[in-house]
């Protein structure tokens, strides 16, 4: 099982990197917001797999905090960081 956990964790990490391409490329500000969504789920899955593989229960708590933070940061992001200048460009 150990091998599977590590392989899957690595695979998910690669997924995250591939998804980052979209986040960096945009084209709209909304596309960059998707980073929050992508990181929220994938990083939690990676942490949970590593917690099981390395037998470190504390990593599960890290995943829990990540899950909580993902929601808060995303909401702050959408409400505050989405500037009007970007909006004008997006609407075109």
């Amino acid at each position: 099982m150990q091998t599977l956990y590590f392989t899957l964790a690595l695979f998910l990490l690669l997924n995250l990197v591939a998804g980052m391409w979209r986040v960096l490329r945009g084209p709209t500000a909304a596309d960059r917001m998707l980073a929050a969504q992508l990181f929220g789920t994938t990083s939690v899955a990676v942490l949970l797999l590593l917690a099981q593989a390395t037998d470190k229960a504390a990593l599960r708590d890290v995943a829990l905090v990540f899950a909580l933070l993902a929601a808060v940061t995303a909401i702050a992001f959408v409400r505050r960081a989405w500037s009007d200048r970007e909006t004008k460009r997006d609407a075109e």
């Binding site: 993902a70 929601a71 989405w82």
Partner: peptide, 30 residues
């Protein structure tokens, strides 16, 4: 704990998806 984490991510994911979609609509992204 695993179940709790999943529920939390589910709630966060659904809320964030709605928030991003609603804001994108308001800002006129076609």
């Amino acid at each position: 704990k695993l179940l709790l984490i999943w529920l939390l991510v589910l709630l966060a994911g659904a809320s964030v998806a709605h928030l991003v979609a609603a804001t994108a609509r308001q800002r006129g992204i076609k």
